[in-house]
């Protein structure tokens, strides 16, 4: 395991902790897309089916369990704090993302089996799952700082996987084409957000310096 992947996984872990912290302390689901979070439940459950038949390492198993359980917990929290009277900005037709990811999974997979197709589906779905959240962000106009930190940490995780894949290609001769291409797609989806985050958050912090 190389430094890029560890940092990526830590970033992913932190993003979820930030989200849970933000929703439970404010007791509000405002500004968080339930559609994006429900998509992540589908992503993790369909990707980690190999928990039942393949043991990689304790680290791998614990992280997989964490991502499945925490994503379900987030959806539970959002449902608990969701106010029905509130005008929703969560309007993106998420079924397009599911449909598109499924078609891609049927075309690009390492084996035409249920487990392999679901694995590929999870990668494509993850690469675009943040879109409903970005739409909410855009429509709300101003977001809580924690929400933007959450999206940043979540985007950073897959971006850090890219140098990990380059490193593995040179050291191990490994190249997981589906993971790499969907990972690059995911980073492109985040690129606009990264730019705005840099402008708003990083520069504002600098402005506060004496």
């Amino acid at each position: 395991m190389n430094i890029f992947r560890i940092l990526g996984d830590i970033s992913h872990l932190i993003s979820i902790l930030i989200l849970i912290h933000a929703v439970s302390t404010t007791k509000s689901a405002q500004g968080i897309s339930l559609k994006t979070q429900a998509a992540y439940v589908v992503v993790f459950v369909s990707r980690y089916l190999d928990l039942f038949f393949r043991y990689v390492s304790l680290y791998n198993t614990l992280m997989k369990l964490f991502f499945i359980v925490s994503s379900i917990y987030v959806v539970f929290l959002l449902n608990r704090y969701k106010k029905n009277s509130e005008k929703t900005n969560d309007i993106f037709p998420v079924w397009y993302l599911f449909g598109g990811a499924f078609v891609f999974a049927l075309i690009f997979n390492y084996e035409f089996s249920i487990v392999e197709i679901l694995w590929s589906f999870s990668l494509w779905l993850e690469s675009v799952a943040i879109i409903p959240q970005l739409v909410v962000l855009q429509r709300t106009g101003e977001a809580q700082l924690l929400t933007t930190h959450y999206i940043f940490a979540l985007g950073l995780y897959r971006a850090l996987y890219i140098p990990n894949w380059i490193y593995r290609y040179y050291t191990e001769g490994r190249m997981d084409k589906i993971a790499v291409i969907s990972g690059i797609l995911q980073t492109i989806v985040y690129s606009d957000f990264f730019y705005i985050y840099y402008k708003k958050v990083v520069k504002n912090l600098k402005f506060k310096l004496p």
């Binding site: 990689v56 694995w119 001769g173 490994r174 190249m175 997981d176 993971a179």
Partner: peptide, 10 residues
């Protein structure tokens, strides 16, 4: 490089 699935990645 050979095309393989990285089973150890999350």
């Amino acid at each position: 490089g050979k095309q393989t699935k990285n089973h150890d990645e999350l």
